[in-house]
């Protein structure tokens, strides 16, 4: 199995509502894939299934062949999937810097006892984490906000901080839920370059949910289209753009 992430005929129901049905997806290493669809199509729900927030009612999910069904979200993150949230979910009482440092928890070598004895090993690790966090913040040009409470950041920067935080968990697969929402065209352009840059630099795969077609079409090599929880198209941007089903889903009758 050479796909990094494989979603195998997943269905999820909330009571009577089938939010996603029979969803198949396969993402290879270092791929940049888009997932689009009108509002309520089930895109966020797909993210929630992959990251273990919801369990699929049917179907299976694999990361490099490891089955993810039944794992807790933090286990899945530990296996190498990180995400951002559509409705920003930063740690509101922490500073920008601490939001990022908190995400290093996963790879921490020290535990509660080290935190109490505060030996040299602990100090070294903390310094190391601080440096790595700053490096990540610099990539996104957020280092100047180091000690700002994250809730005081401008909206666009909060979205970008979420990406930094997700990267801090050292993922192999990054899921971005509408990262460009609320940004102006210049910011969107910068974000596109940035996503391509981090994909290369960290050698990861990216799954991008985004309403702005310019952004998705601009950087994704392959796109899945959902409508009412059903996959109506899949393929490279050019095909998707011309696909009549997609046009109809977006424009209506």
């Amino acid at each position: 199995m050479d796909a990094l992430l494989k979603v195998d005929r997943c269905t999820i129901r909330f009571g009577g509502l089938t939010a996603v049905s029979n969803f198949d997806m396969s993402i290879g290493n270092r791929e940049l894939v888009g997932l689009i669809g009108p509002n309520g199509a089930g895109k966020t729900t797909v993210f929630n299934m992959i990251t273990g927030v919801y369990q699929p009612t049917e179907g299976q999910i694999f990361l490099s062949g490891d089955r993810l069904n039944g794992l807790k979200p933090f286990n899945i993150t530990a296996k190498g999937i990180a995400r951002t949230f559509q409705n920003i979910r930063l740690f509101a009482s922490l500073t920008v810097f601490d939001n990022v440092r908190a995400a290093f928890n996963l790879h921490l070598k020290h535990g509660p006892l080290h935190a109490l004895t505060r030996g040299p090993k602990f100090k070294r690790e903390e310094a190391d984490i601080g440096a790595q966090a700053m490096d990540l913040l610099k990539i996104f040009n957020l280092d100047r906000f180091r000690d700002v409470m994250c809730k005081n950041l401008p909206y666009g920067d909060q979205r970008r901080l979420e990406i930094v935080r997700a990267l801090a968990t050292k993922p192999r697969m990054l899921l971005l839920d509408e990262p460009a929402a609320g940004m102006n065209p210049t910011e969107k352009g910068a974000l596109m370059t940035l996503i391509e840059f981090i994909q290369e630099k960290f050698d990861i795969s990216v799954l991008l949910v985004e309403h702005d077609m310019r952004v998705v079409m601009g950087i994704c090599k392959r796109i899945y289209v959902l409508d009412y929880g059903i996959t109506i198209a899949e393929g490279p941007p050019d095909e998707i753009r011309r696909n009549p089903k997609v046009i109809q889903a977006y424009l209506g009758e």
Binding site: T51, G52, V53, K72, P73, F74, T77, A78, A82, R83, F85, R89, L90, F91, A92, S93, L94, D98, A102, A103, N105, L106, R165, A166, A168, T169
Partner: peptide, 16 residues
């Protein structure tokens, strides 16, 4: 602190 601020986000950051 992350548990207090947002459990869902904490779990998504790999925090048990």
């Amino acid at each position: 602190l992350t548990v207090r601020d947002d459990e869902v986000a904490a779990e998504a950051m790999g925090i048990n």
